[in-house]
Design a protein around this nucleic acid. Structure first.
Length: 873
DNA sequence: CCCCTGGAATGAAAT
DNA sequence: ACATTTCATTCCAGG
């Protein structure tokens, strides 16, 4: 198991590499990154490096896309989309947001967005509207491609299929796929929306497609690229290309118009230059996936003539411009096209403007508090929320555990100006917090909704913007946010996407706020909610621990801990586990459960004695509730302390969490870390215990993130946490540095040296970066990026670092590293254990773990295999 | 009539 | 290659 994990991490790198192959896109991303960075850099610098500050500056810069890009790009990595979307989009998206600050300097808005969501494309449409199916189409696109192969007409075929659902399906090659495709297509598409477009798209059927695609791969061009996507590839080529390459180009085009605002012709030029290569790649790769979604239309259009023609325009238009619009539009079909921004005035009073540019990418890790400001989740969302598919109606807003809805508040803000709270759905795995590729926030409206909101797209990630008003004490009740589930097949096809959707059903609501300061700087804060299980099945079958009455216990154990949660059974087992960095089990033992008092929602367990009674320092371990082989809760943190030392901590756990997540949960936060483990110790401990690498430094290591992704799913279980505060970690180490360029530089630096370096330097010249990055990350070709996953790395780095550092608290981001530790594996070890055993590895029981590991491994293998395949292809 | 939901059927993927 | 089990996604139906 452990090994598996490690492997995973280890692989990651590989993966990333491979990915690259697959995705041409990547390059583009880089480019974008580069470019963006550049831009941003320059601009920002002026402002301030400070992380937070950055934002501000950035914002402007961003105006041009640049900045954002930089950031985004980084992020993007993950998602392929980004690549496509690239800057413009990003910007766009961002722009939508903020409003407040932004002055608008910029102009218009909107942007293009090409990408829109990741899949979102689909989603968004759909999601937003639910009705709109547009997006879904996108996916279809991919399929479409495939179809192409089959028949270009495919459409028709598919469509029909689609209609017919399942059936037919197409037989296609994909067989299964086909079938799948058809069904889905039909469903999604057909239903939803619009017809035409959909139809086209629809045909492809999202799911099916993907599957099919994968298998088949035809791809036209794609060659390898397609991997999964292949379908896309075709599409891509046509469509995509547009996107991708197109996008680039397109973007430009689109942008241009929009962009102009920005500026950027120059920028564009630069970008293009950069991109070129990338572009090419893109073209190849074509990111199809991405395309798919969003593009569906577009691609279609472009690619194929048929649909294409028309669509393109629409699509493109939409994308570019609309992304945001879409959101806003939601209903309208996509393309509404205009800038929505303005549309919903609401509280927003201000026009939105764009702000975005400067804003940090969504995958950047940000602190939850900085200076006087502290963004907190006053009321956490319930641990379970069944997300809805595009093919379903909305399943309502995410609710709070005690009824009601989540509540978030910004403390320490004394200005009279309203701010815009951003909300997006993030991951809940061990890796750094980032937008979740398979879920999107869904805006809920209606009589039951009291909080106004507005949708915007940032790099394929839907972001709900909610006004935070001084008159409400900068507090908002989040009753307007639902969660949309994207079909795994649609997302996995995306070019850059490395995460797998299967069993990756936990998310976190991520809230961000950007506070402009008198100095001109912008302080960006973010907090993530506790993990939310979004699948119907998991919610009904997997045991889940909401609360634990004890966080720590002396090594001898014996104390009783009451667990509050869901799906507990009389035969539920509670297993304590201590794993080494590499993942193997050092210790595993089943705790006694008082069956008599066990209830579906509570379990009373007796803390088992720790394996080593001579602890000199606290040791972080985990425990989970198990209802059967594959029905285990996520890892919960627990800390054994030296008998003498009583508990100080309670929270040691938190530490762990902290590293990982950022957010805070309320209480938990971790923090300890610092306290406890002062310097030295801490690290290890953190690392060890959690997987999270936290790391500070290491964390970023970047590479890990990527791979992990999938695995992460698995892993995720473990630490979801949100630890909020990590700041410490993060901040200290890295953050501080970064400031300058803001985005990019910071984090990465820490992580991967190279990157960092480059980044940093680059500030001056973005270009540099590009080169740098690529290399580092990808090593191999552009594709490398694929690793997008890596993004994480980047993002982090970028992100915040600079800015965030400030926040210090930011740590969140850092925290996530969780994985890092693993990677790092060696290094630390629990230090905690330090004294004693620590070291050795015991393994022991592992069964459970193994199971887990197995799962993970599987996943990883699959991924790898697929990847490799792709690449080969 | 529409929005939510809870429940489940269905088919694909993983074992 | 086949039987099962586990998941994801789509459908249904009631409030």
């Amino acid at each position: 198991m452990k090994s598996a994990e490690e492997d995973a991490y280890g692989y990651t790198p590989n993966v990333s590499l491979s990915l690259p192959l697959g995705n041409p896109c990547i390059p583009s991303q880089y480019h974008s990154l580069q470019s963006s960075p550049t831009i941003s850099v320059s601009v920002s610098e002026p402002h301030s490096y400070d992380t937070q500050d950055d934002m501000t500056g950035a914002g402007y810069y961003s105006s041009s896309s640049t900045r954002p890009n930089g950031a985004p790009t980084l992020e993007s990595p993950r998602i392929e989309i980004t690549a496509y979307g690239q800057f413009p989009e990003d910007e766009v998206e961002e722009s939508s947001l903020p409003v407040t600050k932004r002055v608008n300097s910029v102009v218009t808005l909107t942007l293009p967005s090409a990408d829109s969501y990741r899949d979102p494309s689909c989603l968004s449409p759909a999601s937003s509207i639910s009705s709109r199916s547009c997006h879904s189409d996108a996916s279809s696109y991919e399929s479409g491609f495939s179809y192409n192969y089959d028949n270009s007409p495919q459409n028709s075929p598919w469509q029909s299929p689609s209609v017919s659902p399942k059936g037919s399906t197409l037989a296609l090659p994909g067989d299964g796929c086909a079938s799948g495709g058809s069904p889905r297509h039909s469903p999604s598409t057909s239903p939803r929306t619009s017809i035409t477009d959909d139809t086209w798209m629809g045909q492809r059927g999202s799911r099916p497609n993907s599957p099919c695609g994968a298998k088949r791969k035809y791809s036209f061009n794609g060659s390898g690229a397609p991997h999964k996507h292949y379908p896309y590839s075709p599409n891509h080529s046509p469509g995509p290309s547009p996107q991708t390459s197109p996008r680039l180009s397109i973007t430009e085009e689109s942008w241009l118009p929009n962009t102009n605002q920005y500026t950027n012709s120059a920028i564009l030029a630069a970008i293009n230059a950069l991109t070129t290569d990338g572009v090419a790649d893109l073209a190849e790769g074509i990111p199809m996936k991405a395309r798919k979604t969003s593009l569906e239309h577009i691609p279609t259009v472009s690619l194929k003539v048929e649909p294409g023609g028309e669509e393109l325009s629409p699509g493109q238009l939409c994308e570019d411009e609309h992304p945001s619009n879409r959101l806003s539009l939601k209903k309208e079909g996509y393309c509404g096209g205009f800038l929505d921004v303005p549309q919903h005035p609401y509280s927003w009073s201000k026009p939105k403007q764009y702000v975005s540019p400067s804003l940090p990418a969504l995958d950047w890790q940000l602190p939850s508090s900085s200076g006087p400001y502290s963004l907190q989740i006053e009321v956490q969302p319930k641990s379970h929320h069944r997300a809805h598919y595009e093919t379903e109606g909305s399943r309502g807003a995410v609710k709070a555990l005690a009824g009601g809805h989540p509540v978030i508040q910004l403390h320490g803000y004394m200005e009279s100006e309203p701010l815009t709270l951003q909300l997006f759905i993030g991951t809940a795995d061990d890796r750094l917090l980032r937008p979740h590729a398979f879920y999107q926030v869904h805006r809920i409206t209606g009589k039951t909704v009291s909080t106004p909101s507005h949708e915007a797209l940032h790099n394929n990630t839907k972001v709900l913007e909610i006004p935070l008003l001084p008159e409400n004490n900068m507090r908002a009740i989040i009753d307007c946010a639902g969660i949309l589930k994207l079909r795994n097949s649609d997302i996995e096809l995306r070019k850059g996407e490395t995460d797998i959707g299967r069993k990756n059903t936990r998310v976190r609501m991520v809230f961000r706020i950007h506070v402009n300061q008198a100095t001109g700087r912008t302080v960006s804060l973010q907090v993530a909610s506790n993990p939310i299980e979004c699948s119907q099945r998991s919610a009904q079958e997997l045991p889940l621990v909401d609360k634990q009455s004890l966080e720590t216990c002396p090594a001898p154990g014996g104390e009783r801990m009451l667990l509050d949660g869901h799906n507990f059974q009389h035969d539920s087992k509670v297993v304590f586990v201590e794993k080494a960095q590499d993942g193997h089990h050092l210790w595993e033992t089943e705790a006694k459960v008082e069956r008599d008092t066990s209830k579906p929602n509570s379990l009373l367990v007796e803390i088992p004695p720790y394996r080593n009674q001579r602890l000199s320092t606290p040791v972080h371990v985990n425990f989970y509730v198990c209802n059967g082989k594959r029905k285990r809760s996520q890892y919960q943190r627990f800390t054994f302390v030296p008998a003498s030392v009583p508990t100080i901590k309670t929270e040691p756990h938190d530490d762990y969490d902290a590293p990982l997540l950022c957010t805070q949960h309320g209480s938990t936060l971790a923090l300890h870390p610092k306290p406890y483990f002062p310097s030295q110790v801490m690290p290890p401990a953190m690392m060890t215990s959690d997987p999270r690498p936290c790391v500070v430094g290491g964390a970023y290591p970047v590479s890990q993130p990527r791979l992990t992704a999938k695995p992460s799913t698995l892993t995720s279980s473990s630490s979801p946490c949100t630890s909020p505060k990590l700041h410490d970690l993060s901040s200290s180490p890295f953050s501080p540095k970064c400031p300058p360029a803001g985005p990019a530089v910071p984090h990465q630096g820490p992580q991967s040296p190279i990157p960092h370096v480059s980044i940093i330097q680059e500030t001056p010249g973005r270009y540099q970066l590009p080169s740098l990055y690529p290399p580092s990350s990808s090593s191999s070709s552009p594709t490398s990026q694929p690793s997008t996953p890596t993004d994480a790395p980047f993002s982090p780095a970028q992100c915040m670092t600079p800015a965030q550092p400030v926040s210090g608290s930011t740590s969140p981001a850092t925290q996530q590293h969780p994985k890092a530790p693993e990677r790092g594996r060696a290094p630390l070890q629990e230090d905690g254990s330090p004294p004693t055993l620590a070291v050795s590895i015991k393994q022991e029981p592992q069964e459970l773990d193994q199971m887990y590991l197995d799962d993970v491994n599987e996943i990883i293998r699959n991924d790898l295999s697929s990847i490799s395949v792709h690449s080969h292809a």
